[in-house]
Amino acid sequence: MDYTFHFEVLETYWTWLAKGLWITVYISIISMFLALIIGLIISICRLSKIKILVIFSQSYIEIFRGIPLFVFIIWLYYGLAMVSGINFEPVTAGIICLSMQHGGYLAEIYRAGIQAISRGQWEASFSLGFSIISTFARIIFPQAVKIIIPPTANMFIGLFKDSALVSIIGVNELMRQSQIATSLTFRPFEFYTVTAIIYIVLTLCLSQLAKFLELKMSNE
């Protein structure tokens, strides 16, 4: 136990971490938003009665849920450029990978939430003259949302931490910034401890937001 923490290195480098944090938050929020939309579309396809859409959505879920994010990022950023000449900005590539993979996870969460609503709700709504789209939007989905929120929050916490993986293609997000700062100062424990605390605090914010939404929904 002769290691002495020297947190004063942060005085010089805290702006680095702040910059990294901003990029992490930026990538995460956009990816979450896109994942929500992708997940909804894929789950609707999955639940539809049109065979080609079901096959498409099943394949999507199996492929993008199964592929390691690391490989996916490398493939999209370097592989696609080599094969087709399409070059993405590193941040864009990261957002695409995160939102596509988490869209696949969310699709299954949505599906479970939607299927948890009883058949009787659909039938009552149809009997009252609502169309299938109207039934979904007004009757089924608002009920399913309550079921979907907690596991979605869980997924988002995962996404938030997964976003560190985009550092492999040179995006200067929080984790990479603390790596660089570490290599310059040889103070890994100081930087990684602070980085971990930042992740934990933001995760806490996310889960509190989810709790708040859940409570608000159940009061309505």
Binding site: S118, G120, Q121, E123, A124, S125, I139, P142, Q143, K146, E220
Partner: peptide, 8 residues
Amino acid sequence: QQFNLFPH
């Protein structure tokens, strides 16, 4: 039989 009111 199960009423099927909209709970929300």
